[in-house]
Nucleic acid binder design. Structure first.
Length: 558
RNA sequence: GCGCCCGUAGCUCAGUUGGAUAGAGCAGCAGAUUUCUAAUCUGUUGGUCAGGGGUUCGAUUCCCUUCGGGCGCACCA
């Protein structure tokens, strides 16, 4: 449990005890007070209670303060102006906290998820080409959020959906066939709406290589590519090739899915038909104009949606019903769906499915990421596949590297449009916030490198052998920043906001850089040195945990 | 037309579910290097929180409205 939770629970107990009121720990604040204000932590609890108790907040604050003063780890309590209740903690308490963080990863964890299983689906790109920038944002955001949830008491499943069933896949297969036949001098053309990209020819070449002359000869003369018996092989080869490609890209990006879920498999296993029966039984299907419709308007959608087309084929939406049922059946308590900016019309549809299957709407959470604008030196780059200036995730990684890419993608709230400046991300300077963090870590590592000579036995700065009784301003601020991190991990989870964490880690680095500029670690006064090494050991662990969550590399040297 | 997101410092953005003097980074200005890495630090300039109305002890935050920007409104995926 984080220090903030511990203190909040203490306050909660006091309120219950004194006023017989149950307050949620999330209903009041406990945070660092503004500068010039006393105390290490301040709470607005008295103001929150003013209304229900019909009492002046200042008086409530004083009553709570009196009770707080009897608590173990509290040195002093002051009540300020309208009723802010500010606590000063005993340094001994900080020592215990830091020690916990050094000793075990569990000090960074919280129980927000209460062991619930959450399936978090992201990227889910069509398997017909390279991943783009929007997928990059989704990958970074989804993976980081999953990491945060891992620390917050959830059992996470990272999943991506492979749209290998529909029209896009079909067009891709036809495009590949045409390119393949062209390699043998035939004049087959890529369909009008097909995939014109050069990579299709590359895949065709790979296929030529692998399948050999015999395969080509078996095809013979065909006018209708789709009717050709070899069509399925092109489709399968293209799919496999692209998925491998996407997987390699994601690996470079530090993202690994637990499962790549095939849309086709839902049809083959009969799950689409099975899920249909459930919706049908609940009377949510009807026929109109020879098509089958789902009454999504019952659940707040603008219009009903087709699941089975006039030609008898299923829509993408139909697979989604089976897919959601599949996830639930696997024991998923909560489904998180991370979608691109052009999908906000899909939120109601997915919620409709959840409710149509007979579950509460709250079991699905759809997160819509806003668009990414790629800038180069402040100029907006217009991207279009047709114009050929389309930037793939591979190219982005090539040009700015994994660390900068991941950091830039999660440093802003998902509700905002993201300006991704390629120049800035490439730049190795103080303009680039990624280096600010990595530099802090490198400086830290350097201190420990130096410390090896002065302190042969690192247990000399274990918690039981140092004292935090006296702390200078910079030390105290750094210590406080460190011990607040586990609480921020929890808050990031609650808000589904990785950017909340990146901001706090940036502050943490800032406190350290300040500390570094002002105070020396390696020095004559051995007690002082050991104390600082102890604090920095906890800081190092904290950086490692946070970097791991964000997905950036802790570099020991820069 | 309807729906979703957004409008906060010159630029890019935070803003802890309605609370302390609205915060960072960059850019600008003035400083710091015989000391563990200056990719750093210290100080400083810059705000009618798009406009208007409402709710209340208190609004950047909630409600209504106007204006401005982005995206979406398929028997495509």
């Amino acid at each position: 449990m984080s220090i903030v939770e511990t203190l909040k629970n203490g306050i909660k107990a006091i309120v219950k005890n004194k006023y017989g009121l149950d307050v949620e720990t999330s209903s009041f604040d406990l945070a660092a007070p503004p500068e010039n204000q006393p105390g290490h932590f301040g709470s607005n609890i008295a103001m929150v209670l003013a209304k229900p108790l019909k009492k002046a907040p200042f008086l409530i604050g004083e009553e709570i303060a009196a009770a707080l003063k009897t608590m173990d780890h509290i040195a002093d309590v002051e009540v300020i102006k309208p009723g802010y209740t500010n606590l000063t903690l005993k340094h001994e308490f900080y020592k215990t906290e830091l020690d916990n963080m050094i000793r075990s990863d569990s000090a960074f964890k919280n129980d927000l998820g209460k062991g619930k299983t959450v399936n978090i689906e992201f990227v889910s790109a069509n398997p017909v080409g390279p991943l783009n920038i929007v997928s990059g944002r989704a990958a970074a955001y989804g993976d980081t959020l999953a990491n945060i949830l891992d620390y917050s008491g959830y059992r996470t499943v990272r999943e991506t959906y492979v749209n290998d069933f529909g029209r896009q896949m079909h067009l891709f297969a036809l495009s590949l066939m045409a390119r393949y036949l062209q390699l043998y001098g035939r004049n087959n053309q890529v369909p009008e709406e097909g995939y014109q990209g050069e990579y299709v020819t590359d895949i065709a070449k790979a296929m030529k290589e692998e399948k050999g002359e015999i395969f080509y000869k078996s095809i013979g003369e065909v006018s209708d590519l789709e009717a050709c018996p070899q069509y399925a092989q092109f489709r399968a080869f293209g799919l496999k090739h692209v998925l491998n490609w996407q997987n390699r890209t994601l690996e470079k990006f530090g993202v690994k899915f637990d499962r790549w879920f095939s849309e086709t498999s839902l049809h083959e296993s009969g799950e689409v038909a099975g899920a249909f029966k459930i919706i049908e039984k609940r009377g949510l299907f009807y026929e109109k104009e020879d098509a089958v419709w789902f009454k999504t308007t019952d659940f707040g959608d603008d219009k009903d949606r087709v699941v089975k087309k006039t030609d008898g084929g299923f829509t993408y939406f139909a697979s989604d019903i089976a897919y959601m049922q599949n996830k639930i059946k696997r024991g998923t308590d909560l489904i998180i769906n991370i979608l691109g900016p052009d999908h906000h019309g899909y939120v109601k549809r997915l919620e409709s499915i959840m409710q149509g299957l007979g579950y509460e709407k709250e079991r699905i959470r759809v997160i819509i990421l806003q668009q990414v604008n790629l800038l180069e030196g402040g100029e907006k780059m217009k991207m279009s596949k047709r114009a050929g200036n389309f930037v793939s995730l591979d190219e982005l990684l090539e040009s700015v590297g994994k660390d900068a890419a991941r950091y830039f993608f999660v440093m802003r709230s998902y509700t905002s449009h993201l300006d991704f400046d390629m120049e800035l991300a490439k730049e190795q300077s103080d303009k680039n916030p990624v280096y600010y963090l990595q530099y802090a870590y490198a400086r830290l590592c350097n201190i420990f490198e130096k410390a090896k000579e002065a302190v042969k036995d690192s247990t000399e700065y274990n918690a039981d052998r140092i004292s935090l009784d006296v702390l200078e301003k910079e030390e105290l601020e750094l210590v406080r920043a460190i011990i607040l991190i586990p609480g921020y991990i929890r808050e990031s989870a609650e808000r589904e906001a990785p950017n909340w964490l990146t901001e706090k880690v940036h502050f943490l680095a800032s406190f350290f850089h300040s500390f570094y500029g002002k105070l020396r670690v390696m020095q004559e006064d051995r007690g002082l040195m050991l104390k600082r090494l102890f604090i920095l050991k906890a800081l190092k662990r904290t950086f490692e945990v946070c970097f791991g969550i964000i997905g950036i590399t802790p570099r020991e040297k820069m």
